[in-house]
Design a binder for these strands. Structure first.
Lengths: 213, 213
DNA sequence: ATTACTAGTAGTCGAGTAT
DNA sequence: TATACTCGACTACTAGTAA
């Protein structure tokens, strides 16, 4: 009803008719998905003001992209654009772990520079990133080092700024923020591509490389 | 799991794990959606052969296109291609009814030629047609003439072969077949565009015309 | 008008098991 | 191994109604 773009007013009774259930059930559903953090809800005198949250929107996008690949077929290339930023430098810590390094060498045929390039994404590119994440990936298994647990990682070979071959990497533990992306490469990307914070970067992933046709 | 393109073998137990339910529930669900005509199912010694039916695929497309317009926003133009064919000529019967004619004149600002051009669609263009049908339309109300009931119709102003202005029309009663589309225009399209059965036709609908932005 | 609680019931699920 | 039936347990629904 447009609650994706703007706040929408609807009574639980009207909603009930639309989704073919009782007023009580419609009311309960709204309450429940609010508790799940998927919508915002304000009760007024003549109905309920409803709008979607970022979490809710992302859930919709997930379902949408899933259907998209099954119906339209997987895209042949995914292009993600974003701007360079400095993270907490935890990427460097992770990439210097031997447990990851050796597996990356084997799967991606390059020895990763000990650090990651952090890319900040806008809404459109978050969607593109999620589309990428949905595709079958090269799995880097997690491992234990003492008490510390290092989670699984997913890799997608990619070309950065149409120049350097590297990979997009989603590390389980650090991948809490959907608006950021991490890129690894055999060399130090910031010097190779002369990148400073805020610079635009284009990441190109050819999906045909790892999708069976 | 690929059951959209090909037949897929999966055991109800494996399926259960994937969708987080018991083997019994997975089995029951498969049975039920088969009974709804959404999938085909053959039980073998080591699992179940599953493939989607056209009806099932169309249901997926419906959900997909709904999500698409809410997430990507409505498309600015929809292009549908198909080939001319001869129907049962019931379009002529419908379009000659005064109850429709007068409303069309008012809403579309032209007096419809008493007949419709039938367009046969392939899978890809069926999807485009459904995408069109999902958008807000110009409503032509149904009416009663004696005992006969004439259903509602939905219109979308369109350009045919980049030449003639007309409209795509979905008449409630006759619109049982998703692979066909009916076009109306102020003139006899077959002679104006020199069309014979089997000829290709391009229908262009500018959605911005009737979507509030 | 609304939303939403309580209570009773209809519907769904899964363990056990037959095939 | 499979699929799928029966039946008790549980979940989710709606009617009535309060706020």
């Amino acid at each position: 009803l447009g609650a994706v773009q703007k706040t929408v007013n609807i009574s639980t009774g009207k909603l009930a008719t639309r989704i073919c259930c009782s007023q009580q059930t419609a009311s309960r559903h709204l309450k429940e998905i609010e508790e799940l953090g998927l919508i915002r809800r304000t009760i007024t005198l003549d109905g309920t003001e409803v709008s979607i949250t970022d979490r809710g929107f992302e859930e919709l996008v997930k379902i949408y992209l899933n259907l998209k690949t099954t119906i339209e077929g997987p895209p042949s290339e995914i292009v993600i654009e974003g701007s360079v930023f400095s993270g907490f430098n935890d990427g460097a810590y992770y990439m210097s772990r031997n447990g990851y390094q050796s597996q990356i060498e084997e799967s991606l045929s390059f020895s990763p520079y000990p650090g990651t390039l952090n890319i900040k994404l806008n809404r459109k590119n978050i969607k593109a990133a999620k589309e990428l994440e949905m595709l079958p990936s090269i799995l880097i298994k997690g491992f234990k080092k003492g008490k510390r647990h290092f989670g699984d990682a997913k890799c997608y070979p990619a070309t950065i700024n149409d120049d350097t071959e590297g990979a997009v990497i989603f590390i389980e533990r650090t991948h809490y923020d959907d608006s950021a992306l991490q890129v690894i490469a055999p060399i130090y990307l910031r010097s190779r591509l002369d990148l400073r914070d805020g610079d635009k970067v284009t990441i190109r992933v050819s999906t045909s490389r790892f999708i069976p046709t």
